[in-house]
Amino acid sequence: MKKKIYLIATTVLLTLAVFNSYAATNDDDKSKGITKEAIANMTEEQKQARVEEIKQRVEEIKAMDKSQMTKEERKELKTELKSLKQEAQAMGGGGVYLSVGAIIIIILVLILIL
């Protein structure tokens, strides 16, 4: 009986856990010279410096007066922000995300085990 419970709990946990990786880059990043290989070859100090540059640029964009800009300029800013976000996510790696259901099941399994 215990083996069945462990098997079911393990199956449910594995099906509810979601793994995401944001290390993918798109064609826009490649035109700027930022590829997976370039990020992989960077040292930690270079990555941190680039992340700080990205943060500074995002703050500059936030501080801009966008009311005087044309629609095309705003669209360019939006695409730049998207590419900066993707680059920052690629440098930071991915993450493991658990749904609320998975967390509840983990707690229930721990209660059953203990």
Results as ranks from 00 to 15, higher is better:
19 F>G: 08
40 A>Q: 11
29 D>Y: 04
90 A>R: 11
26 N>P: 00
109 V>S: 08
62 K>S: 14
34 I>V: 11
52 E>D: 14
47 K>Q: 13
49 A>E: 10
92 G>A: 14
87 E>W: 04
44 E>T: 05
83 S>A: 10
52 E>N: 13
70 T>M: 11
82 K>F: 09
66 K>N: 09
13 L>I: 04
108 L>W: 07
52 E>H: 10
50 R>P: 00
77 L>K: 02
50 R>E: 11
109 V>Q: 11
109 V>A: 14
62 K>V: 12
59 E>V: 00
18 V>A: 11
28 D>L: 12
9 A>K: 03
76 E>A: 14
45 E>W: 07
52 E>G: 02
12 V>R: 02
51 V>G: 05
95 G>K: 07
5 I>L: 12
108 L>R: 02
89 Q>F: 08
69 M>R: 07
39 I>R: 00
63 A>Y: 04
17 A>Y: 07
91 M>E: 08
102 A>S: 15
28 D>Q: 08
8 I>L: 14
74 R>P: 00
110 L>C: 12
85 K>M: 07
85 K>F: 10
15 T>Y: 06
40 A>N: 15
44 E>V: 09
106 I>C: 10
92 G>S: 10
14 L>V: 08
53 E>I: 01
43 T>I: 09
20 N>H: 07
53 E>G: 02
57 R>Q: 15
2 K>A: 13
113 I>Q: 10
63 A>H: 04
105 I>Q: 06
12 V>G: 14
102 A>M: 12
65 D>I: 01
